[in-house]
């Protein structure tokens, strides 16, 4: 039945994110739909982790995907994987939004943001990627306390390194190196390759 002489349906090749993004770059809106379906949970989850407000998170997620669509022709594979490219865009937009919102509210929720940024052992009910979440939690656990706090405040809290330095009461130079050392250690613990 499956031998060379059996009648077989046409075999079609799998599509990677790389290939989908390449098709999106040529204006293929069907490929864009597939790219959206594959990347939207990660984009929305990350944005929501930083912004916490679901309505604003939807707005920013929408902005991110419009930017993906518009700038797909400029994507260069040498500068990172498609998912890193999209998530970098998502994180930057979330951080920019939290900072501008914060400026307009006179930074009145600094304490709330700090508290939301730090705990990592609590997994939100809605988080889908539990296995990845556990791996990240374990990797964060392998950092020194200061590295972990600095990375978490910056990445999940959206704080600038100057703010992290104030929050933790350590010099700015120390914060810079701790964020960098912490990320390098996470890279190794998570086996990230590019």
């Amino acid at each position: 039945m499956w031998g060379p002489r059996g009648r077989r349906a046409r075999v079609e090749p799998p599509a990677t994110l790389e290939r989908l993004l390449g098709d999106v770059a040529h204006g293929d809106d069907t490929a864009f739909e597939q790219l959206y379906d594959r990347m939207a949970p990660a984009v929305f989850g990350l944005v929501k982790r930083v912004l916490r407000d679901p309505a604003q998170s939807e707005e920013v997620t929408q902005e991110v995907f419009l930017e993906v669509w518009r700038s797909a022709p400029a994507y260069e594979a040498g500068r990172g994987s498609p998912s890193a490219w999209v998530l970098t865009m998502a994180h930057r937009r979330a951080v920019d939004r939290v900072r501008s919102a914060q400026a307009s509210r006179d930074r009145d929720d600094v304490a709330a943001r700090r508290d939301a940024a730090v705990p990592y052992d609590v997994v939100g009910e809605e988080v889908e990627a539990r296995l990845e979440h556990e791996q990240v939690r374990d990797a964060l656990g392998s950092l020194t306390e200061l590295q972990r706090q600095a990375v978490q405040l910056a990445f999940y809290g959206g704080y600038t390194h100057t703010e992290v330095s104030e929050l933790l009461g350590v010099p700015l130079g120390t914060v810079k190196t701790r964020i960098r050392d912490g990320l390098i250690r996470l890279r190794d613990a998570l086996g990230v390759t590019t």
Binding site: F44, G45, K48, R49, Q62, E126, V127, H133
Partner: peptide, 28 residues
């Protein structure tokens, strides 16, 4: 930067959460 961003992307992807269906329609 490429490597550290890829690392940050893994932290981000671990937060994956299903977005509302209306968002998909709106984006498309």
């Amino acid at each position: 930067v490429r490597e550290l961003r890829a690392t940050a992307a893994v932290l981000g992807a671990a937060e994956a959460t299903t977005p509302p269906a209306r968002l998909r329609e709106s984006v498309l």
